[in-house]
Design a protein around this nucleic acid. Structure first.
Length: 368
DNA sequence: ACTCCACAGGAAGGATTGGGCA
DNA sequence: TGCCCAATCCTTCCTGTGGAGT
């Protein structure tokens, strides 16, 4: 049923971005150096997750590369330090080195960056919320470099910026992406279905139903369409049926989370497994279980058990990634998994936590 | 009203890692 | 070989918070 799986991949970029014409023009207008070749302002790009912020920047960067020969870099700022961001920028530019050692002084990296930037270039800083604006001052000061800052709360981000950066943003553009309407996302899904599925296996009505159910979030809609098609094929259906669509949402959401969990280090996966196996767990009980299984789980790996303070940071990251959720303050805080049965084809985590703690948290009697 | 307790999270500094260099 | 440098991840220490207990 799926003839071109790559059409449903996260990084698939269509030839034309549907229903983002105004936003595309605004961003291109802010970043296009024109015939003079000098830089313009910086751009802010905001909006909810999954509405195409990254796709829009990639599309515009492609346009600028084609029409003006402007190179670009795309840097994910999630968990990155200011030094990492400068280094990744240099590595991602076409004229930059492929690999910059992490012990190269930052001032040297900035110098190399100046050499790698021709008359103008664009750097996209994705997921920049946790990176204070002052931290990217070095990037902002590189002549010819325009920044596109993607964040969820542009006002909060700008409040951490110095005057020079704010002036550059004011000279550029602030583009806010809203969720798609049902018909708009229906159009987008229709294009994907035409490109990636066998002909006429899914109806326009089904696509609009998906668009409505995912509340206009393109990423979820595209993944739900793929999941529905996979389920239809597995069930031997010649066309996508309503139950395939209905069951596709859960599969799509689970697959997105599973991919994130798989990408995390063993220490994070252990904490997730402990919370998942307990179903719901207090912080004190979680620490107690961690202490009990950590040596066993980490044996023979290059990971070592960490203290409670470091675990709190990992837990916060798991919440940020929507793998765990919590409620309550202080000693009353409890964690639970957002996906009760989410597992990865894993290592020692499953075996050890299940063997030592039990699968359902039933012997969870040693709370503090 | 007060103290205690368990926890979150910021700040500071230490240990480690790994490439460069004399 | 030993030192330097920068990044990363960690621990320790600390303050703040808010419910529980007295």
């Amino acid at each position: 049923m799926i003839v071109r799986p790559e059409v449903f991949e996260e990084d698939h970029l269509p030839r034309r971005l549907l229903h983002r014409e105004n936003e595309t023009q605004a961003l291109l207008g802010a970043l296009d150096p024109g015939t003079t070749g000098t830089e313009r302002g910086h751009a802010m790009l905001s909006g909810p997750s999954g509405v195409g912020k990254t796709a829009l920047t990639r599309y515009c960067c492609g346009e600028l590369r084609e029409s003006r020969d402007v190179p670009s870099a795309h840097v994910s700022c999630l968990g990155a330090t200011p030094g990492t961001i400068v280094r990744r920028t240099l590595e991602d530019l076409p004229d930059g080195p492929d690999d910059v050692r992490h012990n190269v002084p930052r001032a040297t990296v900035v110098e190399l960056l100046r050499d790698a930037v021709p008359s103008s270039a664009v750097v996209v800083l994705d997921e920049a919320d946790d990176v204070p604006a002052v931290a990217i001052g070095e990037l902002s000061a590189v002549r010819g470099l325009s920044l596109v800052v993607i964040c969820h709360d542009p006002e909060a981000w700008l409040s951490t910026a110095d005057r020079a950066i704010r002036e550059r943003v004011n000279a550029g553009a602030h583009v806010r992406l809203e969720r798609y309407g049902v018909a708009e996302l229906g159009d987008i899904l229709e294009r994907r279905a035409e490109a990636g599925l066998e002909p006429d296996v899914v109806s326009r009505g089904q696509l609009e139903r998906i668009a409505d159910d995912v509340a206009g979030v393109a990423r979820n809609g595209i993944q739900s369409l793929r999941a529905a098609a996979e389920l239809a094929a597995e069930r031997g259906h010649s066309k996508v049926r309503p139950p395939d669509v209905a069951d596709g949402y859960d599969r799509a959401r689970r697959e997105i989370r599973r991919a994130i969990l798989e990408s995390l280090p063993l220490g994070h996966r252990l904490l997730h497994a402990l919370v998942r196996d307990a179903g719901e767990i207090t912080v004190g009980a979680l620490h107690e279980r961690y202490d009990r299984v950590a040596a066993d789980v980490f044996y023979g790996t290059d990971t070592v058990p960490v203290g409670e303070r470091a675990r709190r940071n990992k837990l916060r990251k798991l919440v940020d990634y929507d793998l765990l959720d919590y409620a309550g303050a202080n000693r009353h805080r409890v964690y639970w998994p957002t996906e009760p049965n989410l597992t990865v084809p894993d290592d020692a985590v499953q075996v050890s936590t299940t063997r030592i703690c039990g699968r359902d948290g039933s012997e969870n009697s040693t709370e503090r």
